[in-house]
Design a protein around this nucleic acid. Structure first.
Length: 908
RNA sequence: GGGAGUUUAGCUCAGUUGGUUUAGAGCAUCUGCCUUACAAGCAGAGGGUCACAGGUUCGACUCCUGUAACUCCCACCA
């Protein structure tokens, strides 16, 4: 079969993904094996695949594929999240384009459109994951609004309400005027903004001169002011407390009150109190028994509904329906016109914005549903403890602190949203506003009968729906129907899940709440390890965003480089928890790596095989003993045969060593480091060293035994790499020889210890080859020009097994062993041995001298530092014996080398 | 304002309980090669006062204190 020049991923990826699917390799059903479970963090149904998903899902696929190859029952569950706010916003926008407003639709009509939208676009992201090679159990695809899932969410709500943990109350909430809904504290993101501080004077109501000046960033709320507050120990204002002032424009009389809450040295030391539009003001208002006057409607526009009729004037009427930001400027101007504005200062402050819509949050008094988190956590001490004592392990560990801190300062969770897309709150009201909480209307009626003695009450369900996270916190359980059908075979087998892979940004939103749900509803942790990914940034370290246009099109990248290369590129430099700077160069590296392996296959395919008696005998001898120095018939044959077998022994040792290392790293979730080890093992050790060592001469056959070993090594390398780069490895696995099985479900053999002795010999050989090649380079010896090498060593025996490889690798025509310097040659020292290189090139004595002197100076410096240590009595007295021994050896080695170099310099 | 973290080669990162030949990779750079698997390649090389200043110790990239810069989390001083 003729192989293409370069690896061509497109067709190969399609072929293998459908083969894996048709073979049912990703499908998991409970059996006797150990389960390895990952539930995918469900992307929003509105989502399209971006770099964050790519990183996240590549990691999950690596873990799940490795588990599968370890013989575990690997189960990776896909699915999507209904994402109430984001999705509803998209559907509303889609309707607007078609000229339909949400308000013109009934709830049922709207939901019909929403479901249509979900059916059409909701699966896109999952299809895209297939392109990346993700080995998900597609039969288990779940959605947070599936009928059973929906029922479970409602059931949990009812349960928590009955336990007194969920309650309804009038509170200051975070209001998003863009989506017209309340938000939880976690959904508010504070941003630094340049704003202005307006100094506004409120004249005294009794007509006396002057007044009191406050500094405010929000003049648009002035019409809702109900008091001015100063610190009671602030001498400037003590005498003013109790006096009345007039609110500009509306001329409402309000009192000056005293409270320690106000800091005297900020602004003017006087604070305007607007209980309807500020959390702190609201607290202050409650304390001092003040009214809350709302002047902004649900869209953040001015409303005069709650204002005193007799105070309303034409100016105020002109504000009606004006947006808060325009109103701010307008009111400032109007106050300035009546001489109430003293000055405007630039001011940097922070404003809360909606995580989903980006709109500036208003604090707003509103009747909402809350969860009493302190009470909830108190009933389940494991929720905090499990992370602290590492029953649930975070990677990186530092995330533990973040979690603990949040738990310690937890606040009530606002779970109601003024949206239609989501689980509708199961509270039922009668005309008088009395309500009960029940799974359905029928039960609600029964409860009304019991609680209020009303039979067949006319009930209306709460219009609002639940926070998306109130459904996704059940994800690891409910994807296995753990709530809707408790104790079924799946939940008992797969739960607790094994590993969760997610972003640190949702540690509170999701991770912490899943831990809570796990302990509260299933009495166990939801997962054992949590791997936090960082954020994918561009190479300048900026966040990827649509506005900056620095977010690459993932599907295009897969098209250009292949899925394996993309997976390689995103993984090669991404330690757990660190942000990764995405650079397309890394993808190129991945693509080049594919080619490298591809070409290695081509090389193997070119070789013809032979079986010699010598090879046969040597192979048998090798099997009896791993010692070197076996006899064979003719020298030439021995070398060519034996060097191949020696190389194979060396690579086997190196492979074993690397396998143990990779295993260890993966157990510690050091994925990118493991990949680096495999990369270097394949590129450097296998391709650059091993294959060059066993490669037969032009049109020469290769010993069959060596060839078979080589195919075996290559297969094992593909096994090791497969979780990271599934497509190319599967393809090569099958190209190497006829197979009955697939790599995808191949089970790793247990790793064995490496042969240290041969590893040492290999290191020596590499060292000498590099050293002599360097000499060739420095002396401008042409690659094709052969050299003669005379080696002066006390351990000539060691060189026997590597001699033929050395000859080939440095293009030597002969290697001999000598006891004295050889004149007219290039002298170099590698380790403790001297090498004399005979060449046609004119000798560059000065250059050699320079090199040797440089080396000598280095060694002398080193020796001085060692001697200094050894002559230090305290060191000799305190250091551990093995440390001391090392220092002595260092000294002896350095002295020996110095002598060797000094000798060489003398003969030059 | 509180807390956590980071700072090692031009860039991205390793460096395990302080001692393993006066710090290791990959990428980039430089030099030489179109050598029959691969120029998307081969061979080789250069490049670091381990942020700074002190301290502990026989010995510090590693431990302690302080300083600086950056990052993240928490907290609505209007």
């Amino acid at each position: 079969m003729e192989l293409s020049k370069n690896f061509e991923p497109q067709e190969i990826e399609k072929k293998w993904y459908s083969h894996w699917m048709n073979s049912g390799y990703f499908k998991s059903v409970p059996d006797g094996r150990e389960a390895y479970t990952i539930v995918m963090p469900p992307p929003n149904v509105t989502g399209v695949l971006h770099m964050g998903h790519c990183l996240n899902n590549t990691i999950q696929d690596i873990l799940i594929r490795r588990a599968r190859m370890q013989g575990k029952n690997a189960c990776w569950v896909p699915g999507t999240d209904h994402a109430s706010i984001a999705t509803e916003a998209k559907v509303v926008a889609m309707l607007r384009e078609r000229g339909i407003t949400k308000s013109s639709l009934s709830r049922e009509e709207f939901l019909k459109y929403a479901w249509e939208w979900k059916e059409k676009y909701g699966g896109i992201i999952l299809e895209q994951l297939k392109k990346m090679g993700c080995s998900l159990d597609w039969d288990r695809t779940a959605f947070t609004m599936d009928p059973d899932y929906y029922k479970s969410v409602i059931e949990i709500f009812v349960r928590l309400h009955n336990d007194g943990i969920i309650y309804r109350g009038l509170r200051m909430v975070n209001w998003d005027p863009a989506s017209k809904t309340a938000l939880s504290d976690e959904e508010v993101i504070f941003k630094d903004v340049d704003s202005k501080l307006y100094y506004v004077t409120y004249p005294f109501a009794d007509g006396s001169d002057g007044g009191i000046t406050v500094a405010t960033t929000r003049p648009e709320t002035i019409l809702g002011d109900v008091a001015i507050c100063v610190n009671p120990i602030d001498e400037r204002y003590i005498s003013h407390i109790g006096k009345e002032v007039l609110v500009p424009i509306i001329n409402r009389k309000i009192k000056i009150i005293g409270d320690e809450y106000v800091t005297a040295d900020f602004g003017t030391g006087a604070l305007k109190v607007t209980p309807a539009h500020d959390k702190n003001d609201n607290e202050l208002g409650k304390k001092h028994n003040l009214r809350a006057l709302n002047t902004l409607d649900e869209e953040g526009k001015f409303t005069l509904e709650e204002l005193e009729d007799d105070l309303i004037n034409d100016t105020i009427i002109s504000y009606a329906g004006v947006d808060r930001f325009a109103l701010r400027k307008k009111i400032a101007l109007d106050i300035e016109a009546i001489g109430g504005l003293q000055k405007i200062e630039d001011y940097k402050s922070q404003v809360g914005t909606s995580e989903r819509t980006g709109a500036v949050i208003e604090s707003r008094l509103s009747l909402q549903w809350f969860m009493d988190m302190k009470k909830f956590i108190a009933t389940n001490p494991d929720i905090a403890a499990a992370v602290a004592d590492e029953r649930i392990k975070f990677h990186p560990q530092k995330a533990k602190n973040t979690y603990a801190h949040w738990m310690d300062n937890i606040k009530d969770w606002c779970i109601s949203r003024q949206l239609w897309w989501g689980q509708q709150i199961p509270a039922w009201y009668d005309a008088e506003g009395r309500f009960v909480v029940a799974e359905n209307e029928e039960k609600a009626k029964e409860m009304f009968n019991i609680q209020f003695s009303i039979s067949n009450a006319q009930l209306k369900q709460d219009e609002d729906c639940l926070d998306t996270w109130f459904s996704s916190w059940l994800w690891p359980m409910e994807v296995f129907k753990g709530i809707s059908n408790p104790n079924n075979a799946d939940i008992n087998y797969y739960y607790p899940t094994t590993t969760l892979v997610t972003g640190q940004d949702i540690i509170f939103f999701w991770v912490a709440r899943m831990v809570m749900a796990g302990y509260a509803f299933k009495q166990t942790q939801p997962f054992k390890d949590v791997y936090f990914t960082g954020m994918v940034r561009d190479k300048q370290g900026r966040k990827m965003s649509k506005q900056l246009g620095n977010s690459p099109d993932l599907l295009l990248l897969i098209d250009q480089y292949g899925a394996d290369a993309v997976r390689f590129g995103i993984m090669i430099a991404s330690p757990a928890g660190n942000d990764i700077l995405f650079d397309e160069m890394a993808l190129e590296q991945g693509r080049n790596f594919n080619n490298k392996m591809w070409n290695a296959v081509k090389l193997l395919k070119m070789w013809s095989l032979r079986t010699t008696e010598a090879g046969q005998r040597t192979t048998e001898a090798r099997q009896r003993t791993t010692d070197d120095g076996q006899q064979a018939t003719t020298e030439g044959e021995l070398w060519s045969v034996d060097s191949g077998l020696w190389s194979a022994l060396w690579f086997e040792a190196r492979l074993n060593e690397a396998k143990l290392e990779v295993n260890d790293m993966l157990n510690q979730f050091k994925l990118s480091e493991a990949l680096k080890v495999i990369y270097s093992l394949i590129w450097d050790d296998f391709c650059s060293w091993y294959l060059e060592w066993v490669k037969p001469g032009f049109e020469q056959p290769i010993e069959k035994a060596v060839y078979e070993k080589t195919v075996g090594f290559f297969s094992e390398l593909m096994e090791l790499l497969h979780p990271f780069m599934p497509f190319v490895t599967e393809e090569i696995y099958h190209l190497l020889e006829e197979r009955k099985d697939d790599l995808c479900t191949h089970v790793y053999a247990a790793p064995v210890q490496a042969n240290e002795k041969i590893l040492g010999e290999g290191a020596l050989l590499k060292n000498i080859i590099s050293g002599l090649r360097d000499v060739r380079n420095k002396n401008q010896i042409k690659p094709k020009e052969t050299i003669k090498v005379h080696i002066q060593t006390v351990e000539a025996a060691v060189y026997k097994s590597i001699e033929s490889i050395l000859t080939k690798q440095i293009n030597a025509e002969a290697i001999t062993y000598v006891n004295d310097a050889v004149s007219g040659t290039i002298t170099t020292v590698i380790g403790k041995d001297k090498f004399y290189i005979e060449t046609e090139q004119p000798l560059n004595v000065a250059g050699q001298k320079e090199d040797l002197e440089k080396e000598l100076a280095h060694l002398k410096g080193f020796l001085v530092s060692v001697e200094k240590k050894l002559s230090n009595e305290k060191f000799v007295a305190n250091a551990k014996p093995e440390v001391l021994a090392i220092e002595h050896k260092k000294k002896a080695d350095a002295e020996e080398k110095i002598k060797i170099i000094t000798d060489s310099l003398a003969t030059l």
